[in-house]
Design a protein around this nucleic acid. Sequence first.
DNA 1: CGATCTGTTGAAGTGAGTCAATAGTGGTGG
DNA 2: CCACCACTATTGACTCACTTCAACAGATCG
Lengths: 251, 251
Amino acid sequence: MATLMRERCLDGQTLPPLSRAHPCAGCEVRGLSVCGVLAEHELKRLRAGTDVVELPADKTIVHEGDPSEHLYSVTAGSLRLSKLLPDGRRQITGFLFKGDFLGITVHDSHAYSVETLEPSRLCRFGREHFETMTGHFPHLEHRLYHMAAHELAAAQAQMVILGRKTPKERLASFLLSLTHRAASQGDDPRHLHLSMRRGDIADFLGLTKETVSRTFTQFKTGGLLRLHSQDDIELLDPERLRAQAEGLIDA
Amino acid sequence: MATLMRERCLDGQTLPPLSRAHPCAGCEVRGLSVCGVLAEHELKRLRAGTDVVELPADKTIVHEGDPSEHLYSVTAGSLRLSKLLPDGRRQITGFLFKGDFLGITVHDSHAYSVETLEPSRLCRFGREHFETMTGHFPHLEHRLYHMAAHELAAAQAQMVILGRKTPKERLASFLLSLTHRAASQGDDPRHLHLSMRRGDIADFLGLTKETVSRTFTQFKTGGLLRLHSQDDIELLDPERLRAQAEGLIDA
DNA sequence: CGATCTGTTGAAGTGAGTCAATAGTGGTGG
DNA sequence: CCACCACTATTGACTCACTTCAACAGATCG
C-alpha cells in the first residue's frame, strides 16, 4: 500500500496538497510520466511497494555511486543531477521537473548525485518491484526505453553546447530548452521561473557563475529578456534568442 | 534473406572475409551486439529483412536529421557520430566500434551524422522489421533499453569531460576509455590503434587539433606513452594516466 | 533591522585558440 | 625505386575570451 513519507523540516506550504487515499487519482503528471502507459489495474499493482516522498529544498536524494534501490517519478518541484571530480569541480548533467523520471541506471548504481532545488514531491518505487512490473508489462519497458532514448538525445545536444558553443549560445540554448518545456506543459513560454541558482546554471553549462551573470546582463541590455526578479525571466525576443543559441548571430 | 551489398570502391583487402551463406554463423561480435540475446530461431527471423553492408573509409552512412529507416550493428571497422552547428563547428558525440549498435532514436530521425573512419562492415536492419521483432521478443527490447542506458551513462561522463576537465585530463580520459574497451575485448590494453585523426579527437574532446597534438607531446615527454606511429600508441604508465584523467595530478 | 547568502560588476591574469610555418606520412606514377 | 604531391601532424608566436580574485550591491529571512 502506498504510504506518504513526509520529511521533518519540509516547508509544507509550498507544495500543493495530496490525497492520501488515492495518490494517483488526481495526479497531474500521470500522463507525462511512466505511469501514463499503465491501465488502471496495472497502476494498482505498481502502487504496491510504492510510496510518496516529500522533501525540502537542498536535500540529497541519492549520492553518486550509491547502489540504486529505488526509482522515482517527480510529481512536484525540481531536482539537480550532478557529477563531481575528486577536487570538487562539478558538472550538472541535467535538471528534473515534474513528470520526469529518475532511475535509468546501468549497474544498479547511481551515475550521479540527485538533490532537490526546491521543496519537491516524488513517487518512489522499489527497484525490484519495478523490474517485476517491466517484466510483466512490455509497454512499460518500451516506455522506459523511449525515455532513455529521449534523455540520450538531450545529453548529445548538451555535448554540443559544452564542447563547441560560446557562453551566449550556451545560455540562450538553456533558456530555450526551459521555454520549450514550459510550452509543452501549457505554460506561458515567455515567462520562466528559474528554480536553480546561477552557480547551478554555470555548472550545467560549463561556465563560471560570473560568466553566467555577465551573459544575463548582456541579454538584458540587448533587449532579449527582462528579469522581474533574480529568477523570474520574461523573454522579449524568443526568435532572436533562438538565433543566438544556434550561433547565427556573430555578437 | 540476407544479402551482401558491397560498395563499389571498397578496399576489400582490409576487411576479413565473410561467409555469404551463413553471415551470423561465424560472427565474432554476435555475443557483444543486440543479436547476442536472441536464440537461433529468433535470429533467423531477424535475418529476414537484414543485409550486410561494406563501406570504405570516410563514407557517410546517415545524415543528421534524415529519417531513420535502418538500424545497424557494427561488425568490423569504426564509425564517428557527429553533430554540426550552422557555421560548421562540429561536435563528435561518440565513436562506434565492432559490436556497437546504431539506431537508438527518438522521433525516427537521426540526431547525428554517421561516417566511417576506416573500411567497415555493418549489419543493416529495416526499422519496421526490427520494431516488429522488439514487439515479439521482450528480451530484445530489454537489451535495447540496456544499451540505451549504457550510452546515456557514457554521454554523462563525456559531459564532465567537456564541461569541467582540462585538455590533459580530457585526452587521458579518452585514451583510458579506449584501453578499457580493448581490455574488454581481450586485446592488449597497453597498445592502442587510433582509427580517428587528431581533428576527430579534438572535436570529440571540445579542443582544437593543435591542442590535442601538444597534449600528446606533453604525454610523450612526461613518459606516459610512446607513439610507434601517429596512430599506434603504447601506454607506458596506465596508472599515472588514470590519475591524470581524474585530475589527481596538478600538472 | 541587521546578518547572511546570492548575484553583479570590475580589474587583472592565463591558458587554450588562432594563425602561420615546418615536418612528417602515405600514396601515385614516372 | 625514387620523386612528387597531398594531406596530416607538430611546433611556434601571439591574441583574447573566459576565469580568477576581489569588492560591492541586492535579496531573503529571522
